[in-house]
Write a protein that binds this DNA or RNA. Structure first.
Length: 955
RNA sequence: GGCCGGAUGGCGAAAUUGGCAGACGCACGGGACUUAAAAUCCCGUGGAGGGAAACCUCCGUGCGGGUUCGAUCCCCGCUCCGGCCACCA
C-alpha cells in the first residue's frame, strides 16, 4: 500500500493528455516561443533503447517547465524511417519494407507514449510518407536549380548563371550541359565505394577503415555514375557560422575538424610541354623560358599541361623539396612515365586501383611507390626533382600531387628513407630541448615544427611565418603559385542503390534508339511526389545497378508530352529525410508549401536540439548545408537551423566483474580467455568463474586498480562497464523497467544518473532508489493505511513555519536554477532534501507540498498529476504557474562561517549576515579556541571574506 | 600520430565566482517493528590515530612542480582512461 501503482496512474494520465490535447502546440506562438527538438529515432526492429529516453526526458522536462512559465512550446516527434534494416529484412523474408517500417513505428510510438513525453502527436511525421518525401524531393529540385556564386558566396538560381558566349552560341543543349556542371546537385562518374554485401554504394563517411560502417563488410572501389551534392561550396560558411551558434566547443571542434580547412599555397612545378615529354627532364633553359612567359599577374584557374600543380601548407620549405609524388590516379601519370619504368608504373597503378581503402591505410607501416623516370623543375631554384608515384598521396585532396620535403614532413621522411632519396633540411629548429637539432641538420631526423630558414638562398634567416608571407607574394608575382585554401570535406555522394529510399525527381532523356543522351529534366514540383514502384522481388542481384532498374516498365519509362524518358533509379541516402524534418514539424499538413513562411519565421530557429554525439558531424553538417541553401533561396529566414545543441552521453550497461586473480598469480578472466566472434564466451566464463567464488565487489577492498576480498584475500577483482550490446547480453529494455518501476521512475533515474552529457553505467538498484524517492513523495502527501489513497492528514491548509518556508523557497530557487542549466541530477537531489525534511514534519502545509508537486511535475509528470488531483485540483497541472521564489523567505539572519589559521580549519563562528569585516574578525578572535591557538603567535595578515570565512596568517 | 573530453569514498556523483571536499542517491553495517521475511522507519558510513564522552589530531580530489593567506577549481610538466578523426601534404 505505501507504494503507488504506476500501472494504474500512468496510463490514466496519458489518456487524459491525449483526450484533452494538452500539449498541442499553437500554429503560431501566442507567447514567447520555444522550439525544443529531439533527434528523431530510426525505428529499428529492436524497439526503444534506454539511451533514447535520456535525451527525450531532458527535452521533455524543459518543455513542461517552460509551458508552466508561460512560453509557447513546440515539441514534436517523428520517424527517420527509411533505412537499410527494413530493406535487408525484405530481401530475406519478402516482407515489403513499408510493412516492416509501419510495424516498428507502431512499437516506437507505443513505447514513447508509455513514457509520458509531452509531444504534440498531431505533428508526427515519418520520412517515408509520400506527403513528407514529396518535400524532400522538392528540396532536391532546389539544390538542382542552384549554383554557388563564389563572388557573392551564396547559392543563386541556375538561370542567373552567366553563360560564356561560345557556349551560348553552341545551342540549348550546350547551355544545359554547361549549367549541369555548376548545379549544387550534379552527376559524376567517379570511383565509389561499392559494398557487395550490402548491395550499395556508400559515402566516404560510411566507410571506416575499408569496411562498411554498418555491418563491417568489405568495400571495393568502382567507377559509377552517381549524384553528388556540392557541399564543398559551402565549406567556408559551414565553418564560419559555427561562431554564431551556442554549441559546445568540442562539437564545434569536431565539425571544424571534419571540414578541415587548411591554408597554404598552390605551386606549379615545370615539367615541359607534352610534346617535349620523353626526355624526362626539362632543360634549364627551357625552364627559364617558362618562368619568363608566365603571366605576371593572376593565376590560371586550371594548371597548364606543362606544370604539375601541388598544394602545400609549408611553402617555406620549397627549397627542401627533393622529390615530388603524384597520386596513382593523377592524370599525368602515363605521360610522365619513361619507357624504362613503364612496366613498374603500370603494375603499381593497377595494384593501387584494386586496393581497398583498408589496404591503403592499414598497410601504411611501409610506404610504397615507383619512380616515373621524369623530373620537374623546382620553381624557386630550378633544381630538377624526381617525380614518383605513391598511394600515400590521395587523388581526392588538394591537387593530387605534392612536393616532398622529407626533412620536414613525417610521411615524406619515411618515404625518402625507404627509397634512399635526398633529405635536405631547410628549417633550423633552434634550441628546443625536445628536438635533436644536430640530427635534423644532418638530415637523419625529421622536424615538422616552425623555426628559422636555412639552405633557402635569399630567404635564409626568416622565421617560418615571415617566409610563408614572402614566398606567397613572390610566387604570385611570378605566376608560379598563389595562396590557397583546402578542405578535407568532399562533395557529398548523394545516391544509393536502394529500393527503400526517396526516388529522385529526375528523368533521363533518351535518344531515338532509347539510349540516354546525358541530359536530364526534372519532374515539376506540382507533380511530386515521385512514388516508389511496387517491386515484385526484393532479392539482391550482386551488381552495383540500382534495384529500381527492375521496376515495372510503366514506372521506369514514363512518357511525358509524347516523349519517352527513363527515371533515375538511384534513391537518396537516409540522411536526406533528416536534413529538414525540423521544418516540416512546424507545418506538417501543408500541401502547398514545405512550410508556411510566416510559421517558419515565427518558430525558427530550433532553440534547443538534443541528441547523441554519433550525429555530431554528419547529420548536423548535412542539415546545416541544406538549411543554408534554403536560406539562400529565400525559403527559410535563419542562416543556421539549431541555435543550441546538447549531446547526451552514452549509457553503458551495468558494471561487470571482468576477472579475478588467484593467490598463485593465475589470472582468470577476459585477458586470458580467447574471445569468440561476438565476445560472449569471455563474458560468460568470467561470470561463472566469479559466481563459483561468490564474489561481491562491494565487500572488496581496493588495492591499486583491483580489489581484494576481506574474506578471500586470495581473490583479486576488477570491474568495469561496457557499451550495451546484444552479444554481451547487457541491454536494458525500457519496457521491463517501466513494468517493474514505472515510467516516472525510469525518467527520474535517467536524469539522476549524472550529468546529461556524461557517459555513465546503468544501475537497476539506482532505479529502485529513485522509485523509493517517488514513494516517499507519495507518502508525504497521501494517507498510507487506507485502501483508497486519500490525502495524508498531516497535509493541512495552514501557513508554513519560517523554517518550512525557508526549505521550500531554497528548493524552488535551487530546482529552478538547476533545471535552467540542465543540471537535472542536482535538481532531483534538492527535491529529495525537501522530501526528507517535510516527511519529518507532523504538519505539512498544503501550499508547500503543492509547490513541490509542481517542481517535480516536469520530471515525473504522472505521479505529479495524480498528487495534484488528490490535493483538490480538477485540471491538469501542465499549465499551472511555476512556483515563485521569494528571496525574503530564504534570508537568514546569521551565518556560520569557518575560521582558519594559516589556511587550516580551526573553528567556526556564527555572525550576523551583514556583519562587517571588523566585526567578523573580532568575533573570530573572541572564539575561545581560536584565541587559545592565536595566543603568543604573531599575526602577519588577516583575510576576511564577508559571509564566507576568516583566515589568520601567522608567522 | 592529431583533436576533444575525463580522473573526487566500495559505486553513481556534488561543490554555480579560488573560500568548511564528499550534498543527494546506491551499496554496506547496526538498531526498531515483525513469529519470520519483505516493506518501512531510525542511526552510522573517506582513511589513519587519540579520547569515557562532547570532541580532537594527521592524511586525503590521478602524479610532480608553481601561483595564492587559501587550489578539486588557475598555470607549467607528466601518467592513465574514454571518444572522434586519421598518410588530408
Amino acid at each position: 500500500m505505501p507504494r503507488y501503482n504506476p500501472a494504474v496512474i500512468e496510463p490514466k494520465w496519458q489518456a487524459y493528455w491525449a483526450e484533452h490535447r494538452t500539449f498541442a502546440a499553437p500554429r503560431m506562438p501566442v507567447h514567447e516561443k520555444l522550439y525544443v527538438l529531439d533527434m528523431f529515432p530510426y525505428p529499428s526492429g529492436d524497439g526503444l533503447h534506454v539511451g533514447h529516453p535520456e535525451g527525450y526526458t531532458a527535452t521533455d522536462i524543459i518543455c513542461r517547465m517552460q509551458r508552466m512559465r508561460g512560453r509557447s512550446v513546440m515539441h514534436p516527434m517523428g520517424w527517420d524511417a527509411f533505412g537499410l534494416p527494413a530493406e535487408q529484412h525484405a530481401k530475406k523474408t519478402g516482407t515489403p519494407p513499408r510493412v516492416t517500417t509501419e510495424k516498428n513505428v507502431a512499437t516506437f510510438r507505443r513505447q514513447l507514449q508509455m513514457l509520458g513525453f509531452s509531444y504534440d502527436w498531431d505533428r508526427e511525421v515519418a520520412t517515408t510518407d509520400p506527403d513528407y518525401f514529396r518535400w524532400t524531393q522538392w528540396i532536391f529540385l532546389q539544390l538542382f536549380d542552384t549554383w554557388f556564386d563564389p563572388d557573392q558566396k551564396r547559392g543563386r538560381p541556375i538561370a542567373e548563371l552567366p553563360i560564356p558566349p561560345e557556349v551560348a552560341t553552341a545551342g540549348d543543349d550546350a547551355v544545359r550541359r554547361y549549367q549541369d556542371e555548376f548545379r549544387l546537385a550534379y552527376q559524376s562518374e567517379a570511383p565509389v565505394n561499392w559494398c557487395p554485401a550490402l548491395g550499395t554504394v556508400l559515402a566516404n563517411e560510411e566507410v571506416i577503415g575499408g569496411v562498411s560502417e554498418r555491418g563491417g563488410h568489405p568495400v571495393v572501389r568502382l567507377p559509377l555514375r552517381q549524384w553528388m551534392l556540392r557541399i564543398t561550396a559551402y565549406a567556408d560558411r559551414l565553418e564560419n557560422d559555427l561562431d554564431s551558434v551556442d554549441w559546445s566547443e568540442s562539437i564545434k571542434a569536431l565539425q571544424r575538424n571534419w571540414i578541415g580547412r587548411s591554408t597554404g599555397a598552390e605551386v606549379d612545378f615545370y615539367i615541359g610541354s607534352p610534346a617535349a615529354a620523353g626526355t624526362g627532364k626539362p632543360s634549364g633553359a627551357e625552364f627559364k623560358a617558362w618562368r619568363n612567359v608566365r603571366p605576371v599577374s593572376g593565376f590560371p584557374r586550371h594548371a597548364g599541361d606543362d606544370v604539375i600543380r601541388i598544394y602545400t601548407t609549408r611553402p617555406d620549405t620549397l627549397f627542401g623539396a627533393t622529390y615530388m609524388v603524384l597520386a596513382p590516379e593523377h592524370p599525368f601519370v602515363e605521360r610522365l612515365t619513361q619507357p624504362a619504368h613503364a612496366a613498374a608504373v603500370k603494375a603499381y597503378v593497377e595494384q593501387a586501383a584494386r586496393k581497398s581503402d583498408l589496404d591503403r591505410t592499414d598497410l601504411a607501416k611501409e610506404k610504397t611507390g615507383v619512380f616515373t623516370g621524369s623530373y620537374a623543375a623546382n620553381p624557386v631554384n630550378s633544381r630538377p626533382v624526381p617525380i614518383w608515384i605513391a598511394d600515400y598521396v590521395l587523388a581526392s585532396y588538394g591537387t593530387g600531387a605534392i612536393m616532398a620535403v622529407p626533412a620536414h614532413d613525417t610521411r615524406d621522411f619515411e618515404f625518402a628513407q625507404q627509397f634512399g632519396l635526398e633529405i635536405k633540411p631547410v628549417v633550423d629548429p633552434g634550441d628546443d630541448p625536445a628536438v635533436d637539432r644536430e640530427a635534423v641538420l644532418a638530415g637523419s631526423a625529421v622536424f615538422t615544427g616552425e623555426g628559422t630558414a636555412i639552405n633557402s638562398g635569399e630567404y635564409d634567416g626568416l622565421s617560418t611565418a615571415e617566409f610563408k608571407r614572402k614566398i606567397a607574394a613572390e610566387l604570385t608575382s611570378r605566376g608560379a603559385g598563389r595562396q590557397a585554401v583546402n578542405y578535407k570535406l568532399r562533395d557529398w555522394l548523394f545516391s544509393r542503390q536502394h529500393f527503400w529510399g526517396e526516388p529522385f525527381p529526375i528523368l533521363h532523356e533518351l535518344d531515338a534508339d532509347g539510349k540516354p543522351t546525358g541530359l536530364t529534366r526534372t519532374i515539376a514540383a506540382s507533380q511530386l511526389p515521385v512514388n516508389l514502384p511496387e517491386l515484385a522481388v526484393f532479392d539482391s542481384h550482386g551488381s552495383p545497378d540500382p534495384p529500381l532498374e527492375r521496376a515495372p516498365a510503366d514506372w521506369l519509362y514514363p512518357v511525358i508530352d509524347g516523349k519517352r524518358y527513363k527515371r533515375e533509379t538511384n534513391t537518396m541516402p537516409q540522411w536526406a529525410g533528416s536534413c529538414w524534418y525540423y521544418l516540416r514539424f512546424l507545418d506538417p499538413k501543408n500541401d502547398q508549401v514545405l512550410v508556411d513562411p510566416a510559421v517558419e519565421k515565427a518558430w525558427m530557429p530550433v532553440d534547443i536540439y538534443i541528441g547523441g554525439a554519433e550525429h555530431a558531424v554528419l547529420h548536423l553538417l548535412y542539415a546545416r548545408f541544406w538549411h543554408k541553401v534554403l536560406f539562400d533561396r529565400g525559403h527559410v529566414s535563419t542562416a543556421e537551423p539549431f541555435q543550441k545543441l546538447v549531446n547526451q552521453g552514452m549509457i553503458l550497461g551495468e558494471m561487470e566483474l571482468t576477472g579475478y586473480q588467484k593467490a598463485d598469480g593465475q589470472w582468470i578472466g577476459s585477458s586470458q580467455v580467447t574471445a569468440d566472434e561476438d565476445g560472449q564466451a569471455v563474458h560468460k566464463s568470467t561470470r561463472e568463474a566469479l559466481q563459483s567464488v561468490r564474489v561481491n565487489p562491494a565487500q572488496a577492498q581496493k588495492q591499486g586498480e583491483s580489489f581484494v576480498l576481506a574474506a578471500q584475500p586470495e581473490v583479486r577483482l576488477e570491474s568495469r562497464a561496457y557499451k550495451m550490446s546484444k552479444s554481451r547480453g547487457n541491454v536494458v529494455n525500457p519496457d521491463a523497467v517501466v513494468r517493474e518501476y514505472g515510467a516516472d521512475a525510469l525518467r527520474l533515474y535517467e536524469m539522476f544518473m549524472g550529468p546529461l552529457e556524461a557517459t555513465k553505467p546503468w544501475s537497476m538498484e539506482g532505479v529502485n532508489g529513485v522509485r523509493g524517492f517517488l514513494d516517499r513523495v507519495w507518502r508525504m502527501i497521501t494517507q498510507e493505511r487506507s485502501e483508497q489513497p486519500e490525502l495524508n492528514p498531516a497535509v493541512k491548509d495552514v501557513p508554513p513555519t519560517d523554517e518550512q518556508n525557508r526549505v521550500l523557497h531554497k528548493t524552488i530557487q535551487g530546482v529552478t536554477g538547476d533545471l535552467d542549466r540542465m543540471a537535472f541530477n542536482t535538481a532531483i537531489s534538492k527535491m529529495m532534501e525537501f522530501t526528507n525534511f517535510f516527511l519529518k514534519c507532523d504538519v505539512r502545509p498544503k501550499s508547500a507540498v503543492e509547490s513541490l508537486v509542481l517542481l517535480l511535475s516536469p520530471l515525473a509528470p504522472h505521479v505529479a498529476e495524480e498528487l495534484w488531483q488528490m490535493l483538490g485540483h480538477e485540471k491538469s497541472l501542465a499549465y499551472e504557474p511555476w512556483p515563485k521564489f521569494d528571496p525574503a523567505a530564504v534570508r537568514e539572519d546569521a551565518v556560520e562561517i569557518p575560521v582558519q589559521i594559516k589556511g587550516k580549519l580551526r573553528g567556526r563562528i556564527v555572525v550576523p549576515l551583514d556583519a562587517t569585516s571588523e566585526a567578523i574578525e573580532q568575533a573570530a578572535r573572541a572564539e575561545p579556541r581560536i584565541a587559545e591557538l592565536l595566543a603568543g603567535e604573531t599575526i602577519v595578515k588577516v583575510v576576511v571574506v564577508k559571509g564566507r570565512m576568516v583566515n589568520f596568517v601567522t608567522k
